[in-house]
Design a protein around this nucleic acid. Sequence first.
DNA 1: AGGTAACCGAGACGGTACGTCCCGTCTTCCA
DNA 2: TGGAAGACGGGACGTACCGTCTCGGTTACCT
Lengths: 195, 195, 195, 195
Amino acid sequence: MTPPNSDRRSERARQAILRAAIELCRDPGFTDMTMEAIAKRAGVGKQTIYRWWPSKAAVVLDALHEQTQPSATFPDTGDVVADLRAQMYAVVSAMTSPAFVPYTALIAAAQSDPELARRVLDLIVAPRVAECRARLEKAQADGQVHDGADLGMAVELLYAPLYYRLLLHTAPPGRDQVDRVLTLLTTGLLTPQRP
Amino acid sequence: MTPPNSDRRSERARQAILRAAIELCRDPGFTDMTMEAIAKRAGVGKQTIYRWWPSKAAVVLDALHEQTQPSATFPDTGDVVADLRAQMYAVVSAMTSPAFVPYTALIAAAQSDPELARRVLDLIVAPRVAECRARLEKAQADGQVHDGADLGMAVELLYAPLYYRLLLHTAPPGRDQVDRVLTLLTTGLLTPQRP
Amino acid sequence: MTPPNSDRRSERARQAILRAAIELCRDPGFTDMTMEAIAKRAGVGKQTIYRWWPSKAAVVLDALHEQTQPSATFPDTGDVVADLRAQMYAVVSAMTSPAFVPYTALIAAAQSDPELARRVLDLIVAPRVAECRARLEKAQADGQVHDGADLGMAVELLYAPLYYRLLLHTAPPGRDQVDRVLTLLTTGLLTPQRP
Amino acid sequence: MTPPNSDRRSERARQAILRAAIELCRDPGFTDMTMEAIAKRAGVGKQTIYRWWPSKAAVVLDALHEQTQPSATFPDTGDVVADLRAQMYAVVSAMTSPAFVPYTALIAAAQSDPELARRVLDLIVAPRVAECRARLEKAQADGQVHDGADLGMAVELLYAPLYYRLLLHTAPPGRDQVDRVLTLLTTGLLTPQRP
DNA sequence: AGGTAACCGAGACGGTACGTCCCGTCTTCCA
DNA sequence: TGGAAGACGGGACGTACCGTCTCGGTTACCT
């Protein structure tokens, strides 16, 4: 997928590799997966993998991304807070499902692989952020959010706690967390009491 | 530091190993560091490392933790927001300094090593969280924060965005980010405008 | 048994070590036996072994030698050939018994350990050779062997074929081999036929 | 040379390995030689050695065998005894040359490695024995040896004393030994004197 | 229609690090 | 001071993968 340009590329091999990668995410898991194992399971020469991907992380990222359905778009019922809650509940569900483990591994791998980091960001994080941002903008236009609110930071504040728990393992992300985050953000209680 | 119990342990070797680990964090970096390199640089047999630590990540964690000064306590000038800002500025400084890179690597490594995750949490994250929490509680007692505010979530909301940027590489954590987070949290603008 | 001189030596430890060596000859076998295993099984510090023996081969040699009864002396019925046959049968029995395996291992070890070679020779081979030689000399005095016969070489010729088979594994040493050796040596058929 | 079947094998690597083995026989010697040293000197990965040989002894055996010229055949001047003497002198020369040391080491190693023992026997011992046997049979046909003589045992009796001295270190094999062996075997003096 | 150039499978190759085993020395504490 | 215990520096083990390479074979295009 990177260096040699060709439509002579074998679609059969490509799919077999992605398929094998997905399967190996399940069983030995991302960390214990090897290029050799992918090649063997896909019935493919190692060279064929190295020809199109730079690392196992790149293969897995492609594999995960390919199998992901176009993803439902951000809900819009007219009530921003309800919509945010619904969407964040969905994210929590995803994060706590076993199928999410390899995503976490990819984020970990990306810490020492800038190119991978960029691709993870572009493929996985950015689209969700953009949608959330768009929903907030619409809400602002609807008057459900202050004109002066810092929407960019709002997006970060909404999702960051989920990733925080996911990656620091302080606790699993959860629905109550979502509720508390929304409460804090929408009530602004982090301010002095009025006497 | 885990399996064999003994006070016959060589303090000389222990320190040489931790020292070597720190040095190797700088030069080849955590990812390219190997147990063999640590042993060689420390002038120590590999077995001596494996006897006391289960992985290079464990060694590095101990090394980083040992070299860390008792850590300045949370500032308390009487103004919570100012104190939070000061402390978070400090965290931003730390995170963007080259010396922080290995911490990031440890968090990455912890994604596939639950025991390491626990130790990272206990040694690095938990104490900071506790201090922040304590400061917020004092602020609440002082009436600078609403009685009903969810302080636990507040701590998460304050720090999560920093880790979010750090680990997802959306942008480097920064002072302006801190300012915007504090603004959003203290003004509660994520609410409908009053007409 | 070599360097430090002392009667403070612990007889208990010495016997435990030799005993352990014998037992380990049986189970993991000489080749797979280690100093550490001997120490552990003997309930002895490694240092205690190294203090008195230079190598595991030395320990095993002592152990084997100590457990060997003073050894029956060469038979003397008046008939040299019969006596030789009897004695050589006994050697064949010994060589083909499982208990002989470590002796073979010692001879092998001696190939790269001159000091061990000397001790193996002195303790194991030389006494038997001397006895055989003495019996042949008596036979010569009795007129059962030619005055001109080269008795030193005769001893070599009698025993060499047994060691030859033992060490080159062309075939196991056997009674028929003994018979055929004796026949060839006593009939001198390796000469032209008389017409 | 055993497990994977393939003509994809690198002849370059094979030769480099055998060459390195020969050289290391000279300098650190068989006992102190390591697989790692062979690999390093041959400029080869360790795996490449392990892929084709089970042990360093196997490598050395192949190396020695490959470098050995097809070997001069048994002399045949018409005089068996002279021919035997000539051939055995040659064996003595070989055995007492420094180049023979690794053969001795192989025989030692074979004591705890049945497969190696078989290969040493087949490659080194058996051919020589067969040639000697053939020469004796021809002598028997020529009437230079009794019809009833036990030729198989004769071969053993001729060579065994040389190996006996070589391996038990009673004395170095020598020409005088050869002479005395031949004398004893051809005169049959190990019999009662005729009055 | 034949030639040729690319991808493909297979897996050997030179290498590096792994985690383990044992070496022979040392250190510590006990009797 | 000898012995038990076992940690220590060291070095080789045999294995696992890395990423590159060579080797036929099989397409698919290009004359």
